[in-house]
Design a protein around this nucleic acid. Structure first.
Lengths: 355, 355
DNA sequence: ATGAAAGCGCTAACAC
DNA sequence: GTGTTAGCGCTTTCAT
């Protein structure tokens, strides 16, 4: 089966190559009758345009690059849904996805962009002073980031609104009657790498607690049993009356639940646990965690849409609360609730609720 | 910064375009002196060959497609290391990787191959009657599978030797003195999908047990706490004296350990647990599991090497035992050990040990 | 509404 | 050892 060219399709359909090209590219000036004949020939000959020839002539490839992170603390379970979202949306636009890892400090990106293999690039987990951003500056490819750069680069981004999420998490727990709330945060490596999202959640939680006149205590947490126990014990030492925690650490959700069992803390009666993570992950542990859903697939899609948009505008995805079995009122409450009720009157709190 | 072409490099270096092309493609007939001058010009002008033009002319793209599975039971933690291995090896050959998901029943593969976007395809998790294999047959692209097809297709593959692994697992446990050994197998979805590897491990374990005159009891296991408890309780019901299990279920390792705690079974004194999984996963639970390491990154690399080889030959990767804290001798033993010793004399058992 | 024709940037056969 | 040259298969301007 030799390769069919546009010329063969053309002669099969009794038209010129340009007409076939017009049909292929949706030129509206082609008559319905001709279009159908050409389509029939394309099908009959099982024709596929040569991507290289098309790219050479048109300057477009309909391929986007996806640069996925490869840090030692990267959690595959967290990354993959973003990837699926990107691939899915890309294909909806008729694009393919070139997979890059950032092992070579931006050199892969430079290569695929400058050799015109891709029309655009999606960057995941951009750090401060990211070499990939530098590699991309001065190149003509479109680029978006999946995750908000810490320093405002000029690149459009789509990200989860971690700060609003932190605030909403506090509000939700306060509304339940909690006043002694802690934060079990991302591993310290994430903070050190200047990734932004860890800080932004931290800030949202701490600011909102302070606004409500409550104390804040947070602790980064390593994704091992020892790390989790350390963080947990540290928090209880600082806040003996702790009744609720926000957890921003996808890799440690079940470890945390085990650790709590080990410390004889019942969830939620001794401790309410509110996770910031993808819905799936919250559902896969026992008890099912109440979570602030990070809609990874949708965000991956969003990044591709941004690449497609004629005027890309960065945006943040609002947190959505997905109720689970891990949160409830604290054991002892009373006037706290009154205080809250008063507060709510002048400033509404609480995130959107999942349907 | 306009795009530099080969002609501009040529005139900058004072040579003809073909000479630049020869340098680019490593033609040995170019003199060292010329080669250096051309290289200098390439660097000075920051030149990158246009991938489309090169593909159009040469018929090669230096891109390989990776078709990753997207089944509901797919474990991202398991898949990603294979992907990393593929990407890494591809780049070592100067290739890029196009990422495909099999959402469209092979149509994506057909598209990228027939439009000449890729030179080869790596197929992950090929099933019996896989639509992707059908899509690929009759196409001229090279193709390899990462995972052995159940029905012998003609495609070269690299896979883990699950059958040998099953046998070696039994031997290892029998050598420790166990005689009541069970198998906690992959989720039933994996068996139903005719993926091969689940069956092959099952077969290895059961055959070796029978050869040694021991009973076999196995049970598929769903990756939820309920599923794990069901499988475990079922196994204990059938084999009340159970002292060891082989687990072939990456998604349930920590759930299993929790379930055992819940049933008051100490590991390894009440039950030895031998996992068939990637080394990493075995290290990340507590206690650290003894495992038969599935070297995913290396296998990913191997698939790419197969694509590169002039005469690709399928091969199976031998199991390597990585000792952990989850296996030991059973509580009560005695004459069993003698029986084994006799047996070993005429047929050596046991896998390669990790260094 | 359709066709003719001019390349896009590169490689490789061939000439010298 | 290096240059000349003829396209690869497609898109797109311009003509009709």
């Amino acid at each position: 089966m030799p390769d069919v060219t546009i010329a063969e399709v053309a002669s099969h359909a009794g038209v010129s190559p340009s007409t076939v090209s017009y049909v292929l590219n949706g030129n509206p000036k082609i008559s319905d009758h001709t279009r159908e004949r050409v389509r029939a020939s394309i099908k009959a000959l099982n024709y596929r345009p040569h991507a290289g020839a098309r790219a050479l002539r048109s300057g477009r490839t309909d391929v986007v690059a996806l640069a996925i992170p490869m840090y030692e603390w990267t959690n595959e379970r967290v990354v993959m849904p973003f990837v699926y979202g990107v691939v899915e949306a890309a294909r909806r636009h008729g694009w393919n996805v070139m997979l890059l890892t950032d092992a070579e400090h931006g050199a892969e990106i430079d290569q695929v962009v400058r050799s015109k293999m891709v029309d655009g690039v999606v960057l995941m987990e951009v750090r401060e002073d990211d070499e990939r951003v530098a590699a991309l500056s001065g190149l003509e490819a479109r680029a978006v980031t999946l995750g908000m750069p810490l320093q405002g680069s000029s690149m459009p981004y789509v990200d989860f609104d971690f700060e609003a999420c932190g605030r909403a998490s506090v509000d939700y727990l306060v509304e339940l009657g909690h006043t002694q709330i802690g934060l079990l945060a991302a591993p310290s490596g994430v903070f050190n790498r200047k990734l932004g999202y860890a800080q932004r959640l931290w800030q949202g939680v701490s600011e909102r607690l302070r606004e409500l006149g409550l104390d804040f205590h947070g602790c980064p947490m390593e994704p091992t049993m020892d790390g989790v126990l350390d963080a947990l014990d540290g928090l209880y030492k600082k806040v003996p009356g702790l009744t609720a925690v926000v957890v921003h650490n996808e890799g440690s959700l079940d470890t945390l639940l085990q650790a709590l069992k080990q410390r004889d803390k019942d969830v939620p009666s001794d401790l309410s646990v509110l996770a910031v993570c993808q819905r799936d992950l919250a559902l896969r542990v026992s008890p099912v965690l109440t979570c602030m859903d990070v809609p990874a697939v949708e965000m991956g899609r969003g990044a591709v849409e941004l690449l497609h948009a004629r005027e890309p505008t960065s945006y943040l995805v609002a947190p959505v609360l997905v109720p689970g079995a891990s949160t409830g009122p604290p054991r002892s409450r009373g006037r706290v609730r009154e205080a809250l009720t008063t507060r709510r009157a002048d400033k509404p709190v609480g995130p959107v609720r999942a349907t």
